[in-house]
Design a protein around this nucleic acid. Structure first.
Lengths: 353, 353
DNA sequence: GTGAAAGCGCTAACAG
DNA sequence: CTGTTAGCGCTTTCAC
């Protein structure tokens, strides 16, 4: 039909009005008569006219595009909650008429990202992910550029520099605490924790939550019960193999993420140890697959789509409303109760020898 | 520092040259003297000048943005290969300096997508997903707009209308055939197939491949051995429960996707049937989780990142090179051999009673 | 080699 | 209520 290059001038000529009238119709200005609007709109529809976005942006109109910038690579391998966040952010933004360009930041593509941020393609940014910050991008984000950080504080974070930014984060301490408390409440005393990468704040916090819960129950954590993992299944399995060999098994394990929990499940299965009959297990992240496992994994949910909901909402607010007050939204992980934890009849001796 | 609104005119003034010289430096034109380039470039770097993308697009420069349009919703629930494709496409495009706006097409957001396609935001489109086509978008794609369809042929597909489009697809027939043949080669004769949604071409083809393989081995397919599933775990489990009840189990099952295979695994586990000792199992899709299961699932890979590689390559080619010949790239699924299939000593009686 | 001028398609003042 | 005019920031002839 047409090649998509119908212009406002064309419409104006065909409809017998001026170019500004066409603009008025497109932007639905109130001072255009209803009949003119209808007439022009008919022509617009007929010719499939859509205002060129570059031209409107040039004259100061918003482009309705936000950026989602994710630090880190090998996303499908680590299979973290970020996979889900990517889609949730898109769906959430679309609901408000925004589109999102999702961008994966790697050590070698800073320039590309910088350009995207500076050349006006995106109006604002959602920033996530665990990789090391790149100075250039971090610097830019420190400027007045609208951004919300999701579960990510730049390494060089200082309250002063970032005070005009929004932050959405899950409370990993609380999550670790609740997970552990859940096990404690079900009678477990000898509880092992397999950590994630401890240079990540999230892992540290989950560990801290675990320790606090144990402490609150008057239990001392034996350091052999804290296995330093890295969120991967393979590392978990080698870690756990050593534990199996020693024959000194806990009654329950709090795994720092679901992948780790899966590693434990597999190790147990191979060793003839049953979950939850012989050992109870709780994960973290609520990966979609966890509900499909046998047994279904009890785990902590960082809030599912609420991370995306809040991030997008906060960003769009700050785009629309200049007076929007930057804020910090903390989401408390929720326990998803399934089948991998068993209630003990009477608490075992725990750490008290 | 600056607010990102440094303009070419600013740079020109500061560097003491004209605006067109700045443009010449930015675009690295050969007729600018090296010293001028260096001088101007220094100023550009210092002030962090980046040409406004809207302005350059307006004068006919490409914006280096492509769209990835995905029909369908609840993507994280069905957990198909599309989740991975989304990321792979982004990474692949970024390698060539392109950014991608990923867009999920739902029944109620056609307008938004139409606009994105028509207003010049994206130069080209990659189209995927299983949902019902929307006429408006389909129409547009039928026009001269550069697009590649990945595992998706519009319902109204006709070779003539789409002959200028690129198509990347996995050969599901071949995949079904190879999966079944693998089981046959390992001595299985009584092989069940649990299908996906049969209104999807992919499911139909996988079923056809299964039938053909059986036929090539001189076996007749008993129709009770073809269970009509819908790619979900829950449906699979209810389907398989009936089968378990009857006591008439096959020696091997070819599941139309990994989720279905997982459903079978769980059902078996609950019924005390071991995989692969009692029953062999092969899936389809090579979801990341399949390697982590116990036993690790043997499955068919649609080519992992090669879908994204080919799609992006084809699209970018057709953007850069007008004379690029549209083509169809068919990817043959590959067998990922893991632990869920057992080799039978001697073929059982199969369907021959 | 470099600068001046035109114009991409749109919107926003300002006249009428 | 509608048309005219002037840019938005950039690239690109075309003179110099």
């Amino acid at each position: 039909m047409n090649k998509g290059n119908v212009t406002a001038a064309d419409i104006a000529r065909i409809a017998g009005v001026s170019r500004s009238t066409v603009a008025g119709v497109v932007n639905n200005y109130s001072y255009i008569s209803t009949e003119t609007k209808e007439k022009v709109r008919a022509v617009i529809d007929q010719y499939g006219y859509v205002p060129n976005s570059a031209a409107r942006r040039l004259v100061g109109k918003k482009a309705m595009i936000i950026g989602h910038f994710i630090y880190g690579q090998q996303l499908h391998l680590t299979n973290s909650y970020i996979n889900r966040l990517i889609i949730d952010v898109i769906e959430e933004a679309q609901k408000s008429g925004y589109s999102v360009v999702t961008c994966i930041i790697k050590p070698d593509n800073n320039d590309q990202v910088m350009t995207l941020l500076r050349d006006g393609t995106v109006q604002g940014a959602i920033v996530t992910g665990g990789g090391p910050d790149t100075r250039e991008i971090d610097d830019l984000l420190k400027s007045g550029f609208p951004a919300v950080f999701v579960n990510k504080l730049p390494e060089t974070f200082s309250l002063k520099e970032y005070r005009h930014k929004h932050i959405v984060k899950s409370n990993n301490f609380q999550g670790g605490y609740r997970a552990t408390k859940y096990l404690l409440d079900r009678g477990h005393r000898d509880i092992m924790h397999i950590t994630g990468l401890l240079d990540r704040l999230s892992s540290k916090d989950r560990l801290l939550g675990y320790r606090k819960a144990m402490e609150d129950y008057g239990l001392t954590v034996r350091e052999e019960r804290v296995l330093k993992g890295d969120y991967t299944k393979s590392r978990t399995e080698s870690l756990f193999a050593a534990c199996l060999e020693s024959g000194d098994l806990p009654t329950a394990i709090f795994a720092a993420n679901d992948m780790t929990a899966i590693g434990v499940m597999n190790s147990c299965s191979r060793a003839g140890i049953r979950v939850p009959e012989d050992i109870s297990l709780i994960g973290f992240d609520n990966m979609p697959i966890t509900s499909e496992l046998q047994p279904a994994l009890t785990t902590m949910s960082a809030g599912d789509d609420s991370l995306a909901r809040y991030s997008v909402a906060m960003l769009l607010d700050s785009l629309t409303d200049d007076s929007a007050v930057p804020g910090v939204k903390v989401l408390n992980p929720e326990l998803i109760e399934r089948e991998s934890v068993r209630k003990l009849k009477s608490p075992d001796s725990g750490d008290i020898k």
